[in-house]
Design a protein around this nucleic acid. Structure first.
Lengths: 126, 126, 126, 126
DNA sequence: GTGGTCTAGACCACA
DNA sequence: GTGGTCTAGACCACT
């Protein structure tokens, strides 16, 4: 499914959250699909079940997962109404990244080309 | 200069580092400009001098600052050779952000327009 | 493990860094071996935990250590690709030392003999 | 004569001391040669006279310089009797450097070749 | 004045 | 248990 980097500075539960977000926003995991149980996931990634639980709870809080007691966790539907706060934050980060790339000498053409390609991939998937 | 959010989950010293990086990569702070001394900055931001020092040391390690003992800290020159590792990390983050923006329903046109505008601003500054 | 000289002009944290580097480059400490926790080490050397942390962080920055949050610090694998900058610095220092030894009247034979012996020891260890 | 790197982590007075040691042990500066006065040197290197004074005092203490009041500072004669303590320290450093070079993957042949060349240069000069 | 080091002790997040 | 952050305050070395 994905790999955890124990040596990373990022907390393990955060890595799990980010990986699930990525798989969801890239369409690998579809709406209402069941995700592995906490115990299964703990075995798969070889980390403590408490850590998985923390990640799942976080994903639930952020509306990426929903849980049916006794049945497990599932992927939520994509947000119906635009999440203004999230989008603003993303544009803020986008701005920072572009500034840094330009600062490091990347050309406008290269950056635009990269963005165009990623948008296209994203559209194709959905 | 900038504000620190004491309630943020991000460490204070990291906020300082990120703010300085932003000011440098957006050209607000120029090469060889002196930054406030550790003690001054501590007063300005109302945090402990040790915390400022930690931030300044980090900025020095990442080559955004240089220090002259007994004189203070200064803004480094922009990197002469492209920092491949840093650029790759930025493209990785860029990919994630674009995926999230598309997931939240933003259009390719809007994103490209935003990127184009930021690139233009960046070029104008330099 | 090793001793700290509190009277030395060299900072305590630097002594710790240098000692660990020595133990690693001489093969005493092997890849993935766990080093004492910050608190343990602070007790062993009778210095403040903050000082140990500073040393450990420095060793992490220089890729001699890696850290797993909540588990401790470990010895990194030897560098896969030659660290050109570090090697150059070492050759520079080597030059200085040889000049000084010759200046103090040591013979070429003695110096070469010493170097040969140290190289051999180093090879034997690996 | 030589350049001072203000951005270096090493103190300016230490850089001056080390540079003079280098010039003396490599034979560029000969016995009884006069070195520039403190004021001259301060102008040449564009640093504070106090800093030069500190460096010169240090060189005097370590017997690389001698001073005649009212006439200035001069290069001392090479040590007649071997300075056992200095030599030991140098061999200690030599050991560390060789270990690091081997750790970074340098070959015994390369290191020996480098040492041989430096010894030869040193002999030629004297 | 500047940055650098160190201590003592508190509190937090993660596994 | 682990490392990470932060504060308060002291002392040092360099310019």
């Amino acid at each position: 499914m994905f790999q955890i980097d124990l040596k990373s500075r990022k907390a393990i539960y955060e890595q799990i959250v980010d990986n699930f977000k990525r798989l969801i926003s890239t369409g690998v995991l579809k709406k209402d699909e069941k995700v592995p149980s906490i115990r299964e996931m703990a075995k798969i990634l070889a980390v403590n079940p408490n850590t998985i639980q923390k990640a799942y709870r976080e994903l639930e809080n952020q509306n990426y997962f929903y849980t049916i007691l006794g049945q497990g966790s599932f992927i939520s539907a994509p947000p119906e109404f635009t999440n203004v706060k999230e989008i603003r934050a993303n544009y803020g980060n986008l701005k920072t990244i572009i500034n840094e790339l330009m600062f490091f000498g990347e050309s406008e053409e290269d950056i635009l080309e990269f963005v165009r390609k990623e948008c296209a991939n994203s559209i194709k998937r959905n």
